[in-house]
Nucleic acid binder design. Structure first.
Length: 487
RNA sequence: GGUCCUGUGGCCGAGUGGCUAGGCUCAGCUCUGCAAAAGCUGCUACAGCGGUUCGAAUCCGCUCGGGACCUCCA
């Protein structure tokens, strides 16, 4: 059995992964707030956890992967002021709030699919779990860790801190946290500076609101994840993930809420993915330095020199470890695009490899290295480095410079299936799968004619065929065993 | 201001004490009618200074640079 090690934010160390109820694994990832288009930073996080989910499944775990859709309760601006983001956007686009939710949820799913992310096992929405959230708030109040003022319920952080380590996830003491917070003004109704809203009273103009024991209102933005993870994964579950930017507030508060409600720390392994930067600056909605996935695919953005296929982008992102910042640049993207193509080209070569009586390479050792890389905190860059070793082996074998036994060729095929497709979640670009059998036969004919021309030293004709095909986007590769082609 | 992370060859990016990933770029070679593809070789890097050690990119200290969080954000 493989020993998998995961960097746990809670302890800031690499720990061996031991699920509570093997082979079952509970995985929760904070999903998007669907009030605008997903941007690439979100995509990176979801892609990282998609890879993590895929690897856990590959290892034989039965994973329940829950990723929520936040479709209510996010406030614009300060914790207890401002408009609901959905209501604000609804006004802007002159739509019902739920039309906003629908529009961007559909868009989100399209992008996830383009990146070949597997759908989660459960994708619960905040609005679908208002009852659960209210129940949780009630329980926190009755346990003495929250209080109601004028229809709004606050979590009492200072009281909680007397019994529990509130700043555990970011390794901070309460005093340090207090220093970083502004003084309460006269307008504040909450008691402590760090207190956050669990339930927020609706204003007369609030569009999305629900009845509760404290009057009409809507849930605070941390309670939904606590309520939904608890409902589907239980009081204590294995892995909770999300972007690093959620660590200090959202996840810290999630732990506090669950602890205050269920008297247990909810999560054994916290995992955080790092940020995406553009020219060294974090890509974010507020900074305005981001581009949307469809702009990236089409290249229709001032920062982009050209469009990049979703799979090339996926490969690019997986070439960096999930816990490192990843800088976006045309140069880096183009480098990855070529690497990705080389990897995919070798797959085609692999299908036609001729076997020998003996092997010059130890493919089992290579396979072992691939597992070692992944078992070391999902080290995809190292995995990819090993896969390029396989590329070299395949191409050398194809050139006749190296011999492989039939069983080793089979092992290489398995290696590609397991790691390139199942774990990394890469796939052939959609264009290449569009080849029809007819085109295949036509190309065979064309290559045949060209081969004859070459035999007769009619290079004018053979070059003309090559150049015309090139113009049409078809590349000819001349090898020892004849020519092949690709789009 | 407080807390924390980080600085690797032309570019991207692994690597936490010795065996110096990988991709891309550039140059050369092999193959080839030529080119492309492929293979091989090279450009032999770890911000600076000092310390610990038989030995450091990797540990410690200082200096300089970059970034994150503390306020909505994956």
């Amino acid at each position: 059995m493989h020993r998998l090690f995961i960097t746990n934010t809670l302890t800031r160390t690499k720990e061996e992964f031991k699920p509570i109820h093997p082979p079952l694994v509970g995985l929760y990832v904070c999903g998007p707030t669907v009030y605008s288009d997903v941007h690439l930073g979100n995509c990176r996080t979801f892609m990282s956890f998609d890879m993590i989910y895929r690897y856990l499944v590959h290892l034989g775990y039965k994973v329940r992967y829950v990723r929520n859709i936040t479709d209510a309760g996010h406030l614009e601006g300060d914790r207890d002021e401002g408009d609901d983001k959905f209501a604000k956007k609804a006004k802007l686009e002159q739509l019902e709030p739920m039309e906003i939710v629908q529009k961007y949820t559909v868009g989100f799913h399209e992008v996830m699919q383009a990146f070949n992310n597997l759908p989660p096992s459960i994708e619960p929405t905040a609005t679908g779990h208002i009852c659960e959230q209210i129940e949780m708030v009630k329980e926190i109040i009755s346990n003495g860790y929250a209080y109601e003022i004028n229809g709004t319920v606050y979590f009492d952080v200072e009281k909680y801190s007397k019994s529990f380590n509130y700043g555990q996830l970011t390794n901070r003491k309460l005093e340090e946290l207090l220093e970083g917070t502004r003084e309460l003004s006269g307008q504040d109704e909450k008691k402590g500076r760090l207190d956050f809203a669990l339930w927020i009273k609706a204003k007369p103009e609030t569009l999305m609101k629900w009845p509760s024991p404290w009057g009409w209102g809507f849930p605070g933005w941390h309670i939904e994840c606590s309520a939904m993870s608890n409902k589907y994964l239980g009081d204590v579950f294995d892995i909770h993930g999300g972007g690093m930017d959620l660590q200090a507030t959202h996840h810290t508060n999630e732990i506090a809420q669950s602890q205050a409600c269920k008297h247990k720390a909810p999560v054994n392994y916290w995992m955080h993915t790092n940020m995406l930067t553009v020219n060294g600056v974090r890509m974010s909605k507020s900074a305005g330095n981001g581009f949307l996935p469809h702009e990236l695919f089409s290249g229709n953005h001032p920062l982009l020199e050209k469009g990049y296929a979703p799979m090339a982008v996926r490969f690019f992102m997986l070439q960096t470890h999930y816990s490192s910042t990843l800088d976006f640049s045309n140069e880096a993207l183009q480098a990855s695009e070529k690497g990705y193509e080389r990897l995919m080209d070798s797959l085609a070569t692999l299908q036609n490899l001729k076997s020998s009586e003996q092997s010059d390479e130890d493919l089992h050792a290579l396979q072992q290295k691939c597992y070692e890389a992944m078992n070391d905190d999902f080290n995809t860059p190292v995995l990819i480095a090993h896969l390029f070793d396989a590329v070299r082996i395949i191409n050398s074998c194809n050139d006749g410079k190296l011999k492989l036994k039939a069983e080793d060729i089979a092992l290489l095929k398995k290696l590609y299936q397991d790691f390139v497709f199942d774990v990394l979640g890469l796939k052939q670009n959609s264009e290449s799968s569009k080849y029809s059998e007819v085109l295949d036969k036509v190309m065979d004919l064309v290559l045949d004619i060209r081969a004859k021309a070459k035999q007769e030293k009619n290079f004018a004709l053979s070059d003309a065929i090559r150049d015309k095909l090139n113009q049409a986007g078809v590349q000819i590769k001349d090898g020892k065993e004849g020519s092949s082609w690709k789009v």
